[in-house]
Amino acid sequence: MTTTTRSDGATASARRDGSAVTFARVVRSEAVKLRTLPSTYILLAGSIAAMVAVGALAAGGLVLASRDGHPAADAAIRAVPTAGLSFGQLLLGALAVLLISSEFGTGSIRPTLTAAPRRLGVLAAKALVAALLGAVTGAAAALATHLLVQPILAEENLDYRLDGQADWWALLATGLYLALVAVLAVALGTLLRNSAGAIVAVIGLLFVLPTALSMIPGETAADILRYLPSEAGNQLMATEIGDGELRPWEGGLVMAGWTLTALVAAAVGFRRRDV
């Protein structure tokens, strides 16, 4: 005890210098939290594995169809790297939800906000970390899928090189899309404060709702479907734009609108409510 007391006194003033909470430090703290949980790695690996595996299946399907005399369209081949996105996004979304909801679940939100009392800064840091994670995961998974499926596609000479701007854009856009998904998930986790509830909300919004709507015949359902976050966001990666479909930048803006709305609602609630 005496030793500690002495060292406290000697270094206290030195340590007080430049020790204020800054946004960069809160981001670093969030990064530490992210990389010190086993669940991070499990969900990340699951997300990437889902995308790669579904991509490989899609490539295999194209190869088989081609052998049966149904040559694959170029757009279908180039959609292979993102074929598994609808599954991969759910696991990544779950990971992003947990960034905040697990803090409410375990009560560690209190130490967190005691250390960094500016709540909007904490939420922004979590959103930023989630966005970076989504961007890297999306781009990396799409690139990995592209590289891994080339030998499969090569069997029917369907393989291709990443040579055009559009090819590279599709990879980067996958990252952009998952970044938006991750921020949307952080916002839902902040609003609902409950891991299970928020993960269900993410799955409902990104997967169940579009699937259900696509089964309903008629113009209205199709119109609504077009503006759902996952449908609009997927236009970011589209290589061919069909009639009445949103252009990539339009789809991106719609998706960003959803994300921003959820984030603003989350920010208002997070700042006002007791924890």
Binding site: S29, E30, V32, K33, T36, L37, P38, S39, S102, E103, T106, G107, S108, I109, R110, P111, T112, A115
Partner: peptide, 15 residues
């Protein structure tokens, strides 16, 4: 009020 999956040291490092 600590995440059960994180080590004690990592909890403190994050703070």
């Amino acid at each position: 009020a600590v995440h059960p999956g994180r080590t004690g040291r990592n909890h403190l490092l994050a703070l």
